[in-house]
Design a protein around this nucleic acid. Structure first.
Length: 279
DNA sequence: GCCCAGGAGATGT
DNA sequence: ACATCTCATGGG
């Protein structure tokens, strides 16, 4: 099924940009399983093709295809670093993942590298998610909140999540117990952020990742080690704390600060744009 | 072996 | 409010 023909680099967006950690590439097609089963995406001359347990509208939103990225680029054309980063990665989009997936993925991301976050996510899905045979490959759904809430700490530590095990279990309990994850997208940014950081394992940065990648809050500006460096090096921002830096970035970059963050982050992390000061 | 990673929480000032 | 430690694990 053809779902669109917008600029979208599937490999860059689904895998390389480190906003989602559970897509796999098999023979030029990209697969991941959701609640109702596996989904496969690939590009042909006609556009973006999809097959599997999903409808076109859901996928278009998931891939942020209904947003005008040319307009976003124009919005930041007067800021050199932002303009350059956007120009470097045509086809990079900021996904709208299920909030639960984004939340748990980024609790796993804390003080961890991308390769290992991907491994942990895979292991978690394989151990606690539903298996779907795709003839050749097996895809696994993301574990449900209840399934994670039922895990013991030893069970999760055996999966090598380390000290994050109790965070995962307790946050899963809170979600299974009615934490309003699905309402965050309709709340003001500040209120949604305040709620999220009340969850164990969720600080400012993880909350911003969940808001940006899972709740449609395009202003959320996660500050990790790379963004910390790049804001000081490329923007000349001198803030002591990362919280202050995030606030300053939102002030400078406005309603779509988080979208821009993703381009800047990828430029810095891959070395596509040089960071001179690493301190 | 060493430093680092899409940090958070606890503790001390 | 800010600085410093520790936390588990493995990539490079």
């Amino acid at each position: 099924m053809l779902i669109g023909n917008e600029p979208l680099d599937l490999k860059l967006t689904l895998i390389d940009s480190a906003q989602c950690f559970r897509w796999t590439e098999v023979d030029g097609r990209f697969g991941a399983a959701f609640e109702d089963g596996p989904v496969w995406l690939w590009r042909t001359e006609a556009g973006i093709q999809a097959e599997g347990a999903c409808d076109a509208g859901w996928l278009r939103h998931y891939l942020d295809l209904d947003r005008d990225y040319a307009a976003i680029a124009a919005e930041y054309a007067h800021i050199p670093a932002a303009r350059d980063a956007v120009a470097l990665f045509p086809g990079l989009r900021v996904m709208n993942q299920p909030p639960w997936e984004a939340l748990i993925s980024f609790i796993l991301s804390a003080n961890n590298n991308v390769t290992r976050i991907r491994q942990l996510t895979d292991t978690l899905c394989q151990s606690c998610g539903a298996a779907w045979d795709c003839g050749g490959a097996t895809l696994y759904s993301f574990p449900t909140p209840q399934r994670l809430a039922d895990c013991t700490e030893d069970e999760l530590r055996a999966l090598k999540v380390g000290y994050r095990a109790p965070f995962l279990i307790e946050t899963a309990r809170r979600v299974a117990d009615g934490f309003p994850l699905d309402d965050l997208c309709r709340m003001p940014y500040d209120e949604a952020h305040r709620l999220l950081v009340s969850l164990p394992g969720v600080g400012d940065k993880v909350a911003d990742c969940a808001l940006l990648f899972g709740c449609g809050h395009a202003c959320a500006f996660p500050v990790d080690v790379w963004v910390d460096r790049l804001m000081r090096d490329w923007f000349g921002v001198t803030c002591k704390s990362r919280a202050a830096l995030a606030k300053e970035a939102r002030r400078r970059l406005g309603a779509h600060a988080g979208l821009m963050q993703q381009f800047l982050f990828h430029a810095a992390r891959t070395g596509a744009m040089e960071l001179r000061n690493r301190d």
